[in-house]
Amino acid sequence: MQSKKTYTLEEATRKLEHYCAYQERCHKEVRQKLKDMYMIPEAIDVIIVHLLEHNFLDETRFAKAFVNGKFRIKHWGRQRLTYELKKKDISKITINQAIKEIEETEYLKIFQNLSEKKTDTIKETNVYKKRKKFIDYFLYRGWESHLVYKKAQELIK
């Protein structure tokens, strides 16, 4: 029989400080980590307050880092970014702040480059099927539908 590892408040605090220092985290991730460590609700609250006071945990900083990374590396659109942040229980105000960090010109430039590359990689001969594959690809990644449909009409003829 395997026993559960238990942590003192001090050990758990140190472990979570390291967890938050390694990578930006949101409150939901930290709370889940503490629950997985079998910490009681009172201890969870004490540790989260400690992390907030010592600047290990910052929801705005997390949202900005998340948006920046997912946009530049995975090329997600604004809608997907918003959806994923909502799943992490980030406030609407914080989400909007983070999304505004993306410059409009950079956003459209990346969309233009991605759409041209994607058009070249779709090996479909039927125009309608090719257009559908293009549209599905970009809608899944959270790009605005008016941009996607306009670009599909423009590039796929």
Rank of each mutant, 00 (worst) to 15 (best):
Y140E: 12
T105R: 12
Y83E: 14
K28W: 03
I156K: 03
K151Q: 11
G69T: 10
E104I: 15
R31S: 03
I44Q: 06
L16Q: 03
E103R: 05
L52C: 06
I93G: 08
K33V: 09
E106M: 09
Y22H: 13
Y137L: 14
L139N: 00
Y22R: 08
L52S: 01
E29H: 04
T119L: 02
Q153H: 05
K150H: 09
M1C: 13
S91L: 15
S115A: 04
V67K: 01
K109Q: 10
F111A: 00
M1S: 15
K129W: 01
R78Y: 02
P41W: 11
I93Q: 15
K123M: 03
Q97C: 09
K150Y: 06
L147A: 04
Y137C: 06
F71Q: 03
L108I: 11
A63Q: 03
R80S: 14
E53R: 07
T119R: 06
K133C: 11
K157W: 02
E116R: 12
V148L: 03
L139W: 11
E103S: 10
L52V: 06
T82M: 08
E101N: 13
V148P: 13
T125D: 09
D136G: 11
I110N: 01
Y137S: 09
Q97R: 11
K100Y: 10
R131A: 08
A21P: 00
T6W: 14
K129N: 14
L155H: 01
E116I: 08
Y83S: 15
E144Y: 05
I93C: 07
E84Q: 11
V49P: 11
E11S: 05
Q23K: 15
L81T: 14
L108F: 14
I95C: 06
R141W: 03
K133W: 00
F134S: 14
I93E: 15
Q97S: 13
G142E: 00
I135T: 05
F134H: 03
Q97V: 14
H75R: 06
E11P: 13
K117H: 11
K150C: 12
I48F: 06
K157G: 13
T125S: 10
L139D: 01
Y107A: 00
S145M: 13
K118I: 06
G77V: 02
H75N: 10
R80A: 15
A65W: 09
F134Q: 07
Y22D: 15
E104F: 10
K88D: 10
A65H: 12
M37P: 07
H27W: 04
L16K: 00
L114F: 03
D58A: 08
V49T: 12
L52T: 04
Y83P: 04
I93P: 05
H54C: 06
L52N: 01
Q79R: 10
T94D: 11
K118Q: 13
K88E: 08
I95F: 02
A43Q: 04
S91R: 15
V49G: 13
H146C: 11
K74C: 12
L34P: 02
I110E: 04
T8M: 05
E42L: 05
F62P: 00
Q23Y: 02
K129A: 12
S115G: 08
E24G: 10
H75L: 06
Y107I: 07
T121C: 09
R78K: 13
F62L: 10
K86D: 06
C26M: 07
R141L: 08
I135P: 04
F111E: 00
R131L: 04
E53W: 03
